[in-house]
């Protein structure tokens, strides 16, 4: 049962990572990357590492996602108004 969950989580990690790089639109890629970060937090919980899971959820998914979306928004606004 836990092995099935682990396999599912592993597949979800690989798929979201692949889609992050292959998504045609950049904003979707960034949102997929945030989803990847949250899946990583789950993987850390499965690896009995709750400390890293907490940090990954707050930093890897939260702060990095906010930084990336902010940069995307600024670049987009600059393009719209040269």
């Amino acid at each position: 049962m836990t092995l099935a969950f682990d396999l599912l989580l592993a597949l979800a990690l690989l798929w979201s990572a692949w889609r992050t790089l292959a998504a045609p639109r950049l904003d979707r890629a960034i949102v997929l990357f945030i989803a990847f970060g949250l899946l990583m937090a789950l993987a850390w919980a499965r690896l009995a590492a709750p400390d890293i899971g907490l940090a990954e959820a707050a930093i890897g998914a939260g702060l990095t996602g906010a930084l990336l979306l902010d940069a995307y928004g600024v670049l987009q606004r600059r393009r719209d108004r040269p």
Partner: peptide
Amino acid sequence: YLLWAGAFRPGGAFQAGAVLAAAGV
């Protein structure tokens, strides 16, 4: 809480700092 709990259970300065930073953002 995370800062205090870090001494005896999962938590600590990194997580606490990240939560505070997220509040600022």
